[in-house]
Amino acid sequence: MDVFLLIIKRLKTGCQWRELSLKEYFLKEKVSWQSIYYYFNKWSKDGSFKKVWIHLLIKK
């Protein structure tokens, strides 16, 4: 879930991927901005991100 929240934050703020505040979301794990971008790219290409986004919009 934290990966998704960071992707949303990046899209909302328009910041660079490398400027994401990973320490706020991952206190114990070592996560890089590249891994967040990897999941965004993967989910965008296979349509998963769009499906989740639409589901969240409908749910609200």
Rank of each mutant, 00 (worst) to 15 (best):
D2Q: 15
G14H: 03
W33N: 04
K9H: 15
G47L: 01
Y38W: 00
C15Q: 03
H55R: 04
I36S: 03
D46C: 01
R10A: 06
K28T: 11
R18M: 04
D46K: 02
R18W: 11
L11M: 11
K59E: 14
S21W: 06
L5F: 10
S35G: 12
Q34H: 10
G47Q: 06
K12E: 15
K42R: 10
I8H: 08
V31Y: 01
V52C: 03
L11P: 01
L27E: 14
E19R: 04
K12R: 14
I58P: 15
L6M: 10
G47N: 07
K60C: 08
K23S: 15
S21Q: 10
E24H: 12
K30P: 00
W17F: 09
H55S: 02
T13M: 07
K51G: 07
K42F: 09
W33P: 03
V31F: 02
S21V: 05
Y25E: 02
E19T: 11
C15Y: 06
F49A: 05
K60Q: 14
K50W: 09
W17P: 07
S48Q: 03
W33Y: 13
Y25T: 02
D46E: 09
M1Y: 15
K9G: 13
Y37S: 00
I36G: 02
K60V: 11
F40D: 02
I7V: 09
L22V: 05
K50Q: 12
I58R: 11
H55N: 07
Y37V: 00
L27I: 11
L56S: 06
Y25L: 01
D2F: 15
G47S: 08
K51T: 08
Y25K: 01
F26A: 01
N41I: 09
L6F: 07
F4V: 05
Q16R: 10
Y37F: 08
Y39T: 11
D46T: 04
I54A: 09
L5K: 13
K42L: 08
Q16K: 10
W33A: 02
V3C: 09
R10C: 06
H55M: 00
L57P: 08
S48A: 01
K59W: 13
K42C: 07
